[in-house]
Amino acid sequence: MRLTCPHCGPRDSREFKYFGDAKTARGDDFASTYLRDNPAGEHAEIWQHISGCRAWLEVVRNVTTHKVISVKEAGQ
């Protein structure tokens, strides 16, 4: 799997660290900590380009086909 970092271009997924569901990434209540939609389709998720520019990214990916739909800077 490859992610196209907006700064560095297409890179192997091993350069990135996964931080899970983008929807619940910021919350600190019970539901955001413990409950997940866990869809079998498109999933918005946070990744960090740790072995590259270290930017935090929001990736939309189909978790059934592993097709990457979009990558942008997180929080934008």
Binding site: S13, D21, A40, T64, T65, H66
Partner: peptide
């Protein structure tokens, strides 16, 4: 593999 997945196959990493 380290990320959400419903594919019954994994990545080469």
């Amino acid at each position: 593999d380290g990320y959400n997945s419903y594919a019954q196959r994994g990545s080469l990493g």
